[in-house]
Simulated scan of single mutants.
Amino acid sequence: MPLHVAIIMDGNGRWARNRGWPRLVGHRRGAERVKQIVKACPDLGVSHLTIYAFSTENWKRSTEEVLGLMTLFSRYIEREAEGLNAEGVRMRFIGDRAPLDGRLRRLMDGIEARTCGNDRLNLTVAINYGGRNELMRAARKLAEAAAQGVLTPEAITEETLAAALDTADLPDPDLVIRTSGETRISNYLLWQSAYAEYEFTGTLWPDFSPAELGTILDRFALRDRRFGAVKA
Rank of each mutant, 00 (worst) to 15 (best):
K141T: 12
E158C: 03
E212H: 07
F208D: 00
A155W: 08
T201M: 01
K141Q: 13
K141Y: 09
T157G: 04
D207E: 14
Y198V: 12
G149I: 10
P173I: 00
A138E: 03
L151T: 11
L123E: 14
L190C: 14
Y129T: 06
P171T: 02
W205L: 05
G149D: 11
L161N: 00
E197S: 03
E182M: 09
T183D: 15
P206F: 03
R140H: 09
T215E: 15
T203P: 10
P210V: 06
L204I: 09
Y198K: 03
A126M: 02
R178H: 03
D119I: 06
D174Y: 08
V176K: 00
W191V: 01
Q148P: 08
V125S: 12
G202L: 01
D119E: 15
P173T: 04
E144Q: 11
A155L: 03
L123V: 13
L161I: 01
A163P: 05
P206M: 11
E154H: 08
A126I: 01
L135V: 11
T215V: 09
L123D: 13
A145R: 11
W191M: 02
W191D: 12
L190W: 04
K141I: 02
D174W: 08
A143Q: 08
L121S: 01
Q148C: 13
I127N: 05
T124E: 13
G130N: 09
T157R: 00
P206W: 00
E199L: 15
Y188G: 05
L135W: 02
N187E: 10
E199W: 15
Q192I: 03
G181P: 12
N122P: 11
A164V: 07
G131V: 01
T179M: 00
N122I: 14
T160N: 12
E159D: 07
R132M: 07
E199C: 15
R184E: 14
G202Q: 10
N133V: 09
R184I: 05
T203G: 11
N128V: 09
T160R: 04
E158W: 05
V125L: 11
E199D: 15
F200C: 02
G214A: 09
E159T: 13
V150N: 14
R120V: 03
P153F: 11
S180Q: 12
N128F: 13
L217S: 07
D169Y: 15
S209A: 06
A211C: 05
W191H: 07
S180V: 07
F200G: 05
P206I: 00
F208K: 07
R132G: 03
V176T: 15
Y195T: 07
I127C: 08
L151W: 06
G181W: 01
N133Q: 09
T179L: 00
P206H: 04
E197V: 15
D174V: 12
A196K: 02
L175W: 01
A196H: 03
P206C: 02
R184H: 04
V176N: 04
P206R: 06
E212R: 04
T201Q: 06
T160I: 02
P206A: 01
E182L: 11
S186R: 00
T203Y: 10
E158Q: 10
A163Y: 00
L165A: 06
A168H: 13
C116E: 15
L204H: 14
A194S: 14
R140E: 14
A145C: 08
L175Y: 04
Q192K: 02
E197Y: 05
T179N: 04
T152M: 10
A196I: 10
G214Q: 12
A211G: 11
T160G: 06
W205R: 01
D169W: 07
T152S: 15
G202H: 05
